[in-house]
Amino acid sequence: MKILLSGLKIFGRFRPGKGVFIVDNTPFFVRDATLGGEIEVVERDGCLWYRSIVGGV
């Protein structure tokens, strides 16, 4: 599933029961989101947009 983070596409897997996504990749310059970290998203204009970090690895 594609998630937009400041207009950049990252990929993640939905974690059932928690309503969050697990990050599968990040651009090298992103410091807050980590591989395997959990993020909350919001749907807007048919896209999922990053909202906040829920947990990290």
Rank of each mutant, 00 (worst) to 15 (best):
G56H: 13
G56Q: 10
L5K: 08
L5E: 07
K2N: 06
D45W: 05
W49A: 06
G12E: 05
G37Y: 00
R31I: 08
V57Q: 00
W49I: 08
V41I: 14
G55V: 09
L8R: 15
G12S: 15
E40D: 14
G7E: 10
F14M: 12
K18T: 10
F11M: 07
I3H: 01
E40V: 06
F29S: 14
P16L: 14
V57M: 01
I3Y: 00
V42K: 12
D24W: 11
G36K: 02
F28D: 03
K18D: 05
V23M: 03
P27E: 09
S6D: 14
K18H: 07
R13F: 06
V54S: 13
F29I: 03
R15W: 12
V30Y: 00
G19F: 10
D45V: 05
F14N: 09
T34C: 08
R31D: 09
P16S: 11
V30M: 00
W49T: 04
S6L: 10
R15L: 09
G37A: 13
G7D: 08
S52P: 08
V30Q: 00
D32M: 12
V20R: 00
T26N: 04
I39Y: 03
N25S: 04
I3M: 02
K2T: 03
A33Q: 07
L35V: 00
F11L: 08
T34F: 05
R15E: 11
R51L: 15
F11R: 12
G17N: 02
D45Y: 13
K9C: 06
V57E: 04
C47Q: 06
D24H: 09
Y50N: 01
E43S: 10
G37T: 01
V23T: 04
D24F: 05
F28E: 05
G46Y: 10
I39H: 01
T34Y: 01
K9Y: 07
F28S: 10
W49Q: 07
G7S: 12
W49P: 00
I3D: 01
V54M: 09
L4M: 08
E38P: 00
V23I: 11
G7H: 10
E43H: 14
W49K: 10
E40W: 03
I10C: 00
I22M: 09
V54L: 07
V42G: 08
A33I: 15
E43T: 14
L4S: 04
N25W: 02
S6Y: 10
I39R: 01
V42T: 13
T26M: 06
L5M: 07
I53N: 14
L8V: 15
V54C: 05
V57A: 02
G56T: 15
E40F: 08
G12M: 04
V54N: 11
G46F: 09
I39W: 01
I22F: 07
G36Q: 02
K2W: 00
M1H: 12
I10L: 04
R31T: 11
R15M: 09
I22N: 02
R13E: 06
L4Y: 05
A33D: 00
G46N: 14
F29M: 07
G56A: 13
I22P: 01
G36H: 02
P27M: 05
L5F: 15
K18I: 05
D24I: 06
